[in-house]
Design a protein around this nucleic acid. Structure first.
Lengths: 215, 215
DNA sequence: TAGATTGTTAATCGATTAACAATC
DNA sequence: TAGATTGTTAATCGATTAACAATC
């Protein structure tokens, strides 16, 4: 099924976009879509769309287009989002609690099972039905609850320390919302959401002198 | 000062990273750094670093390296982050309040001046000293307070509607935290932080079958 | 001066676009 | 069948790396 060509990061990011877009479309009756139409709607060239889809399999029908259900299933399969990923949040501050309050992740198969903190005032509280637990329970909780993703929402002075704890506990995926980058072994995957980088990029785009650019 | 070569998006993203990195370094006494050393620390090739820096100006000293202060100042200047950008948040829900509670943006010159919502229960409340205001006050508030960035934190069913309101009010930069993409005129710049895209990318990276990839 | 490191051009590598034969 | 659109190869474009002369 999968070719041994490696798939570029840009393709992966677009695949997540297609998936999201198709999800929105799903409600409507259209069950077949051409690369031309999808490209028109999403602002991506049809050629690139076909390259992207063909990178992960062959599921178009020549002369017709792509079946939306198949497309969604295949992309989902490829990205590994057709199975459950249990998550925990490290740091039950504002951001950690906000993520716990958001039900969108659970809906797509990424439920948050627990929040971890060291602040005794928080421990025992429940956010959206999710308990805040003492950090020293982490190891057993990860094992007992089949956790595979840790979400980092702590201040930068303890980010690396918390990372190391997660890695030691056997976590293989870290979603890093902290302000700094982290070091992990090769077999641990990291995806960072860095607010500063994003805000500074916006600042650049708005900077009068440079008025070209498309995102 | 600026060449008319357009600067690629990848270079911009790296420039924001350098800036952030240099900020952390600033505390220490090292005032000069070579592309080799910086590259070693950040995992970026020295050659690429020099290309990036030269894209926005010439401020290295041959035989020595780059002065950290100059570097920070020049990159900041280029990204437009050496001046104040007043921001407002649209949607005073969990995420909007969390962003308002975070002081990091104000510290780097991006203060949040107001939160907007339509929920009467929220209006009048203060989050971290920032007032929640009725949406119908938006236009005058933007003018009176010199706002140039709107942060979108609303549910997807009203995202485009809120975008249009911001655009009509003359906002030129939108930081979009909502779940879907938005349409704006060419002169309005958008930077999106899409949690789903990010989470799905992490999912892919962890997907056993495909164990190559570096972020 | 000798050593080091930049600035910059050339070479390579990778990603996007164009084109078209295959085929539904 | 004719028309449409995929799958895929070739051409182009852009980004990264290598190399080295310039110079501090």
């Amino acid at each position: 099924m999968e070719k041994d060509k490696t798939i570029s990061n840009t393709t992966i990011r677009r695949l997540t976009k297609y998936y999201r877009y198709i999800e929105e479309l799903d409600l409507k009756e259209t069950s077949i879509i051409s690369s031309y139409t999808l490209g028109k709607m999403m602002g991506i060239s049809p050629s690139l769309i076909r390259q992207d889809f063909n990178a992960i399999g062959e599921f178009g029908r020549q002369g017709h287009g792509y079946n939306l259900d198949t497309l969604k299933k295949e992309i989902g399969e490829f990205l590994g989002i057709n199975k459950i990923h249990n998550m925990i949040v490290i740091g039950a501050g504002n951001l950690g609690q906000t993520l716990a309050n958001y039900d969108g992740f659970a809906k797509v198969g990424f439920p948050i099972k627990g929040l971890f903190d060291i602040n005794p005032k928080l421990i025992g509280m429940k956010i959206n039905g999710i308990e805040i637990i003492d950090l020293d329970q982490l190891n057993s909780f990860i094992k007992d609850n089949n956790i595979d993703i840790g979400i980092l929402c702590v201040r930068k002075h303890c980010v690396q320390q918390m990372t190391d704890i997660l890695v030691d506990a056997g976590i293989k995926g870290i979603w890093n919302f902290s302000a700094i980058d982290i070091d992990v072994p090769d077999d641990v995957k990291v995806e960072s959401v860095n607010f500063s980088n994003s805000l500074f990029t916006l600042s650049y785009l708005m900077n009068d002198k440079y008025t070209n650019q498309k995102s």
